[in-house]
Design a protein around this nucleic acid. Structure first.
Lengths: 245, 245
DNA sequence: CGACTCGTTGACTCTCTTCAAGGATAGTGG
DNA sequence: CCACTATCCTTGAAGAGAGTCAACGAGTCG
């Protein structure tokens, strides 16, 4: 079995893997897409490949921003904490997501693995030099960051103005839009995060999330086979709740 | 008087001005900072310079994203609307801010002038070509977008988890941090937006904003000489309320 | 002066939170 | 195999913070 074979690994956590850019699963979606084939070697010389376990953090809010990361497999959550423990999850990341955005020289959030996750890592300084050398990376980065920003703005609307029911519906639609490989309806949606994470993402409590899901279930819009899955029965109705159409 | 002299203009709104990049006030902070002096002419050939009045919008949510903008003077607000009229202001922009971020090919928000505002405008396509030519623009853009994203994440924490008092305190601290040219305390803070805008930015109602400001006044933390100004009397205490330290 | 906008204040309502208890499932060890 | 424990989710009852509805004061403008 090749050393970069992903999936259920039993390596020690945060182990550096012997992977490569050429064989990367997400070459076509990641920021490095624009790098010419023959230059990939350059990229690899500064890249490190990591594998981390659920619950582990790779960066911490307010730590010096030494690295930037790219998620190549698995899922992560980003969050900000208040001194008294209140938490806001600012986003969930999946394959292809970029990570390590910082305000000046410190990370603006903590990043923690939701599942077993693989990443590639670049020293920040050297990565910035790459931008000067490969303008296409800059273009790609700008595009990714703009999408992230648009997502953040949608989330602000959700957090500032939507009701609990609208928030939960929006969340399910968001998850479903990510996993629409299988176009068949109704969609059985895997939920990789627990209720606490959902609540902290939606600016609610776990009780409200639970009650709201129960409400959607009673209305025949979703069904909940188990905690880790939700089946969307009436997607149009769910979407109209989410956007209040 | 030179035609690009900003300030209280009586030109027809959205008028194209005869300005130039060389004489731009914000050359050192804007995204175009990295463009070599001798290449500015190139930039100018695709740039247009606008002057708009308070209340006018330059872009509308869901319109095709044909242009990107740079605020060279004045102030703007960005917001998203729900069909039933609920509004979330996602940010206030001042001189040097970049604008026109889009999700794919549509604007993700509406941008409206708060005061008389001057902007420079670039066709999106041609701007993207510039990125390929001047990597420094890409670097600058990446840096600006990262800062915007960090700001958006802080705002998500505010909207998702902070109390009304904490939100208002955070808002005042945010405004004050922008206007800290005069380092003298207590700071007399000009408030260029009205209560409705503040409420829609903080995810509150105008009544709650008003009551909360009154509360802070009663506690001797601020004073309110008039609706358009707030004097911060106890900045440290305000900051500790904002961050719950 | 009256009409209008904007901000403040009061009384009441309501959505979501808090506090508390109980059910479901999985893992552990005797 | 079955307590025992731990974690996660659900449900109920009560409470609080912010929203809603309404009135009023201050400033502005024609």
């Amino acid at each position: 079995m090749a050393p970069f074979d992903s999936g259920k690994s039993n390596w020690k956590s945060t182990m550096l893997l012997d992977a490569s850019c050429r064989q990367c699963d997400i070459r076509e979606t990641a920021f490095c897409k624009g790098v010419p084939e023959q230059e990939l070697a350059r990229l690899e010389t500064i890249a490190a490949f990591l594998d981390i376990n659920p619950g582990e953090t790779i960066i911490n809010e307010a730590d010096p921003a030494e690295f930037i990361f790219n998620v190549t497999g698995g899922a992560m959550k980003l969050y900000k904490l208040m001194p008294d423990g209140r938490r806001q999850i600012t986003g969930f990341l999946f394959s292809g997501s970029f990570l390590g955005v910082s305000d000046h020289s410190e990370y603006a959030y903590t990043a923690e693995a939701l599942t077993s996750t693989t990443l590639c890592r670049f020293p920040r300084k050297q990565f910035e030099n790459l931008l000067a050398e490969f303008p296409s990376i800059g273009q790609r980065m700008v595009s990714i960051l703009m999408d992230d920003l648009a997502g953040a703005q949608s989330q602000m609307l959700l957090l500032g103005r939507k009701t609990a029911r609208e928030r939960v519906a929006s969340f399910l639609i968001l998850l479903a839009s990510r996993t629409k490989k299988t176009e068949v309806e109704p969609t059985l949606l895997p939920i990789p995060m627990n209720r606490v994470d959902i609540a902290d993402f939606l600016g609610l409590t776990i009780e409200t999330v639970s009650r709201t899901l129960t409400g959607l279930k009673k209305d025949g819009i979703i069904s909940i086979p188990d905690g880790g899955h939700i089946k969307i029965l009436e997607r149009d109705e769910l979407a109209s709740i989410a956007e209040h159409l």
